[in-house]
């Protein structure tokens, strides 16, 4: 049986998400069975570009407006400079032929990395399965994550 690796994606910072996908993709390339568990702000990484109004409270709706999420919109944790820093970094990454976050997501899927969304964070933010990109395999809770992580040789929190 192949070794397991898990990555908790807690943050929706672009730089952290890039690191998470780089490691998940490397793990998958090394023959590991990789699961990424998206929780709290990390849900922003797997949000669709357009999220339906849905059955959200006023606060959830307002929070969704301030933090719209989706891979394309994420900002760096440092040197964002109203978006200038982030777009400069993106174009530098292109120059050095480093995969964008969207390419990292596609590659992870191609390599069989499993994506899971945390149900508690979804409830808190008023999000449903339909608000996430199709690549998400499942929604689950902490016990599911820990069940997998307890068999994992590499378990990361990013």
């Amino acid at each position: 049986m192949s070794e397991k690796m898990t990555v908790i994606v807690f943050s929706d910072d672009l730089d952290r998400a890039l690191a998470a996908f780089n490691l998940a993709n490397t793990g998958a390339s090394m023959g590991m069975e990789v699961t990424m568990f998206f929780t709290f702000w990390g849900l922003g990484v797997i949000k669709k570009e357009r999220v339906a109004r849905g059955d959200k409270s006023f606060m959830q709706w307002a929070m969704g407006l301030m933090k719209r999420g989706s891979a394309r919109r994420l900002k760096m944790s440092q040197m964002n400079m109203l978006g200038f820093g982030t777009s400069t970094m993106k174009s530098m990454m292109k120059t050095y032929r480093m995969p964008s976050l969207q390419e990292g997501i596609a590659l992870a899927k191609e390599q069989g990395v499993k994506f899971m969304a945390c149900t508690t964070s979804m409830a808190l933010m008023g999000l449903t399965r339909d608000d996430f990109i199709d690549e998400v395999d499942d929604v689950a809770g902490a016990a599911t994550y820990l069940g997998i992580a307890s068999e994992g040789k590499v378990n990361l929190f990013i």
Partner: peptide
């Protein structure tokens, strides 16, 4: 050539 970690490894695996 011109690719950085982890791409050479990912491409090797493929």
């Amino acid at each position: 050539v011109g690719l950085y970690c982890p791409m050479p490894i990912v491409k090797t695996a493929q």
